[in-house]
């Protein structure tokens, strides 16, 4: 019997897993953004001595996970599972990272929702009694994403104002059955929501309906209201998606205006850094959460946060065949108290 499930799509953890260590590595552009002081390591060169952008991304993820493990005073043998994913075909960044680590590995694909997908599953593994320590990680790289989804870097094209900028970086979280918090107390698993947006340069609008669906379900399932949170933050809806969520949530009777924002909006200064609608990519939610939010929670500045990474689960092939972009959003409650 699913004794920990509440409502339609939410799990309430009986022994909420604790976050015991995090680490973030970001690229040079992210290291010039407004959150630069929260990142653990800023690369001077986004290739990092590797022969390709794909290899660089794998190295970024690998070094991030290693540092998170070291930060937690642990070794690879202490970790029961590695849950990781990324944007590249066949999630190569995560798999080639796992090749180096010899930790039992589940590869995930949730596109940019991977951070909360991995944290939800990691927390379930621990509270289910299947693991004591789990690493949840994800990465993305501007240049490897550009060549897979868009144009060569040196091609002279113009970007739409709704387009977003893939974050270069990686974030890793270590969850443990013991620890003094912050804790993951609830996880609301998202459904695929697709309102028919086909424009791959407008991911924010494609993912916003999924975010709204998950938010409303989360409030219904848990009985929380928005004011129970100090911060509600989505993964990479960007400016366009954030505006849609604020507007449509208001029509549904939820006023989020003072406590809702988006990692993609926060990570760059879109005027100075020319990132149009904001950041995107798996690393967007990963570095903002493992850097900014986690550190602010440790200081006690946020007591309860709803983190909701959002994903656009399409591919260029099916998009060219005329299909629209399915969106998803997974939400987790992170609390400095266990209950």
């Amino acid at each position: 019997m699913a004794i920990k499930k509440i409502g339609l799509q939410t799990v309430k953890f009986q022994n909420p897993p604790s976050i015991i260590s995090t680490y973030t590595i970001v690229g040079p552009k992210e290291g010039e953004g407004p959150l630069k002081d929260y990142f653990d390591y800023i690369l001077e060169d986004d290739v990092w001595g590797q022969a390709s952008f794909e290899k660089a991304e794998a190295k970024i993820q690998e070094e991030t996970i290693k540092a998170a493990i070291t930060n937690g005073n642990l070794t690879n043998q202490d970790i029961d599972y590695l849950l990781a994913g990324d944007l590249l075909n066949q999630i190569i960044s995560s798999t080639y990272t796992a090749r180096q680590l010899s930790i039992p590995y589940y590869g995930l694909y949730g596109a940019c929702s991977t951070m909360t997908e991995s944290l939800s599953l990691g927390a379930m593994l621990i509270d289910g009694g299947f693991a004591d320590k789990v690493v949840c990680a994800t990465s993305s790289h501007f240049s490897s994403a550009e060549r897979q989804f868009r144009f060569p870097l040196e091609y002279g094209s113009q970007r739409n104002f709704s387009a977003q900028w893939t974050v270069t970086g990686a974030g890793a979280t270590i969850l443990s059955s013991t620890g003094d918090g912050p804790y993951i107390t609830y996880a609301t698993t998202g459904k695929i929501v697709d309102k028919g947006i086909k424009d791959a340069t407008n991911m924010g609008a494609a993912m916003a309906p999924a975010a709204i669906d998950t938010l409303i379900t989360h409030f219904n399932d848990t009985g929380f209201s928005p004011n129970d949170y100090d911060l509600i933050i989505s993964g990479d809806l960007g400016r366009v998606g954030k505006a849609i969520v604020l507007d449509l949530m208001k029509k549904e009777g939820y006023d989020l205006s003072n406590l809702f924002t988006d990692c993609g909006v926060e990570i760059f200064d879109s005027e100075k850094q020319d990132t149009h609608a904001g950041g995107s990519g798996c690393a967007c939610a990963a570095v903002v959460f493992n850097g900014y939010i986690y550190k602010e929670m440790k200081k006690g500045n946020f007591k309860r946060v709803l983190l909701m990474a959002t994903g656009a689960l399409h591919s260029t092939t099916i998009n060219q065949q005329g299909e629209s972009i399915p969106g998803i959003a997974h939400a987790i409650t992170i609390d400095i108290n266990k209950d």
Binding site: F161, S162, K195, G196, A205, A208, P209, A243, I244
Partner: peptide
């Protein structure tokens, strides 16, 4: 879907 697409279109700068 159609109403949402028209709505979203207006949100783009």
């Amino acid at each position: 879907n159609k109403e949402y697409q028209q709505y979203a279109e207006k949100k783009i700068p």
